[in-house]
Nucleic acid binder design. Structure first.
Lengths: 246, 246
DNA sequence: TCCCGCTAGTTCCTTAGGGAAGTCAACGCC
DNA sequence: GGCGTTGACTTCCCTAAGGAACTAGCGGGA
């Protein structure tokens, strides 16, 4: 059972990419070139390139060519506890581009809606109970990198700035604190999968790019849930970090 | 610019899967059936099915057929702080199969090797300094779900059970504690991408299945790094959870 | 100098046809 | 009844050919 030609071609190209022979940004040999070099049909060469695209290694632009993708992650730090000097924040196996690139909000909306079922349980509400829903899309350098939707019980936040587009200085959590519901603990649940078409569209994802789904639960004193935040991240743009005691 | 046929077919099937019309385990219409129903060439029907496979929604077995994949995640809890009764452990937007399925170790090895560059910095060692390397593969119900490689400074652990296959009751961290290097804090850095062929092989991954890379740093008192653990998880089998204070 | 149109090169998509390799169940034989 | 074989069905792979959609650069004209 010899490995089929399209796979051998893909293996060759992958090795050249991982070895640095084809560095990020470099143009990968075109379909026509591969047809000549390997003496295969056009479909076969095309399949080989499709494999690399599906692995997230390359990015094809019609009419232009196929290029090696680059990886410049954004560092997302949650539960930051350890001081940088002592615990060596620079200690990483992946050299993240730690340059703090500013994050902008692109499209935002704030609505009061009936609570979806999967959220209701987490917030301790009945399904359909009124919740305020804050919807946003975050950009870095003009490109979308994250979608976020947070849900807050309407009874808890009615009348506050949380129900307005601009939630004011310090954001939602500062307003919750003023209302006597300062978050004290967080739980984040994380799933990873390939994106649905709508998600791929909203985040402008290339082929072979997974998404990270983070469901963040914020709790106030006595374990009262005050917010659920569902985030969808472009996996190719994030390096995530959590810190916690033994 | 009308959407091409193969994409329309894929959209139809995807909708049927997400609507529950085609539940997990159900057989997806075969290539031949799609050729008849949609009146397209075989390659086109094949492409449509390839889209769903690349999205991780289906799994094809040659000679048998294509079936809808199911998602039965393993819950991985890190930094567990909140008590279950008070903080509602059941509160999740994804109903994880919380049944604790036992985890087995499949192939393991323990070696002393020179420290790779990317690890050396994190452990505060020179590149090439001797480290003990513990390599393992974890199975759940006979299927591989995670690879793990941990690195410990040889000077620190020489002579202890950490250098043997069976590290004894309580594992590596218990031995570290006995040596006076009890871990007190952890940092986990997480990346997500599509697997390399070797990773796909070692974890028996289907198409459209990303991997989660976790680099875990363990620190003892005064911020002394004692271990780096690089893990590779089958993303389709894990629901990860982190807890931390505000 | 600037802008427009052309052109060569690129990826993307489809049809038609052939064959290899694996699975599964029904059938016939012992 | 049990067992092996056969055949229908399935996914997988390749070739050949053609056309659509898009891009970047070049050259000519105002």
């Amino acid at each position: 059972m010899p490995t089929p030609p399209y796979r051998r071609i893909a293996d060759d190209l992958r090795r050249r990419i991982l070895d640095g022979d084809l560095p990020p940004g470099a143009v990968v040999p075109s379909e026509n070139v591969l047809v000549e070099q390997y003496e295969v049909a056009a479909e076969t060469a095309r399949r080989a390139l499709a494999v690399l695209a599906a692995e997230g290694l390359t990015e094809a632009r019609r009419g232009s060519g196929t290029r090696v993708r680059s990886f410049r992650p954004i560092l997302r730090q949650a539960g930051r506890r350890l001081s940088a000097e002592q615990w060596g924040s620079g200690r990483s196996v992946w050299q993240a581009d730690l340059d703090q690139r500013p994050m902008a909000v692109d499209s935002a909306s704030v609505d009061q809606r009936p609570c979806p079922g999967r959220i209701a349980g987490a917030l301790g509400l009945e399904e359909g109970a009124p919740v305020w829903v804050r919807d946003r899309r975050y950009l870095v350098e003009g490109a979308p990198v994250m979608l976020a939707t947070s849900y807050l019980p309407a009874e808890m936040v009615a009348g506050s700035a949380i129900t307005r587009l601009d939630s004011g200085p310090g954001g939602t959590y500062a307003r919750l604190a003023e209302l006597g519901w300062a978050p004290t603990d967080f739980r984040e649940q994380v799933r990873v999968r390939m994106p649905l078409p709508e998600e791929a569209l909203a985040l402008a994802l290339g082929a072979g790019t997974p998404v990270v789904l983070i469901a963040r639960f914020a709790f106030a004193r006595d374990g009262v849930p005050v917010e659920v935040n569902e985030m969808t991240l472009d996996a190719s743009r994030y390096l995530m970090e959590w810190e916690f005691p033994a």
